[in-house]
Amino acid sequence: MPHATEANPPGDIPDNQAFVPFSPPAGGYSVKIPEGWARVSGGTTTSFTDKLNSIQVSTASAATAPTAGSVIKSDVPRLRAKVPQFTPGTATSVTRTGGTAILLTYQGDSSPDPVTGKVVRDAFERYTFYRAGMRVDLTLSGPTNADNVDPWRIVSNSLRWL
């Protein structure tokens, strides 16, 4: 009996996606990102995109480790001003292979498609890691209806301090 064809919603990252390590020129950390995604770097931020999904990695100096409360107090207002139709979710402490992180969930609208002008509602997972005065913000986003739980777990568990 033949297997049913898998119907993936728009933005669903395939289960067979290969991942490759990325480390910025300044070093400090590495993280796995999906192979073949477009990369744009500027300052301390590098973004990777493919179709409707995005990964953004930013670094900053920080005197102390973030808490759920500090992320809500300092980061949410900046995101609200930057992300169209921002809707906050929750901020919680989570454990990943690279250590403890603050996970901030939220939703917002994508930038308009340059060809069609279409806007997609995105779900965001933003992990804030901290070590020895360095903060790494790892932001994963894709359409709210996409099933990216497994790929996002691979990426968020792949952060390694160098």
Rank of each mutant, 00 (worst) to 15 (best):
P2E: 08
H3I: 09
H3K: 11
T5M: 13
A7G: 02
A7H: 13
N8S: 11
N8Y: 08
P9R: 10
D12W: 03
I13Y: 02
F19K: 00
V20N: 02
V20H: 01
V20Q: 04
P24D: 08
Y29R: 06
Y29A: 03
K32L: 12
I33W: 03
I33F: 03
W37Q: 04
S41M: 01
S41F: 01
G42Q: 11
G43D: 10
G43Y: 13
T44S: 14
T44E: 12
T45Q: 13
T45E: 12
F48V: 01
T49W: 01
D50Q: 13
K51I: 10
K51T: 11
L52R: 12
I55H: 05
I55A: 01
Q56N: 11
S58F: 07
S58G: 08
A62W: 04
A63C: 00
A63K: 07
P66F: 14
P66A: 13
T67A: 15
A68V: 10
G69Y: 07
I72P: 07
I72Y: 09
I72F: 07
D75S: 14
P77M: 10
P77V: 10
R78F: 09
R80M: 11
R80S: 15
A81E: 15
P84T: 01
P84Y: 07
F86K: 06
T87S: 09
T87L: 09
T92P: 05
S93E: 15
V94S: 07
T95C: 07
T97S: 12
G98H: 01
G98S: 01
G99F: 03
T100F: 00
T100W: 00
T100M: 04
L103G: 06
Y106T: 03
G108R: 09
G108D: 11
D109S: 14
S110A: 11
S111M: 08
S111P: 00
D113I: 03
T116A: 05
T116D: 04
T116V: 07
V119H: 07
V119D: 05
V120T: 15
F124C: 08
E125V: 02
E125P: 01
E125S: 12
R126W: 11
Y127C: 08
Y130M: 10
M134F: 00
V136A: 05
V136T: 09
L138R: 09
T139P: 10
T139D: 13
S141M: 15
S141T: 15
G142L: 11
N145H: 10
D147G: 08
N148P: 03
N148H: 03
V149L: 09
P151F: 00
I154K: 14
I154S: 02
V155D: 00
V155A: 03
V155S: 00
V155Y: 01
S156K: 04
W161C: 07
W161F: 05
L162C: 03
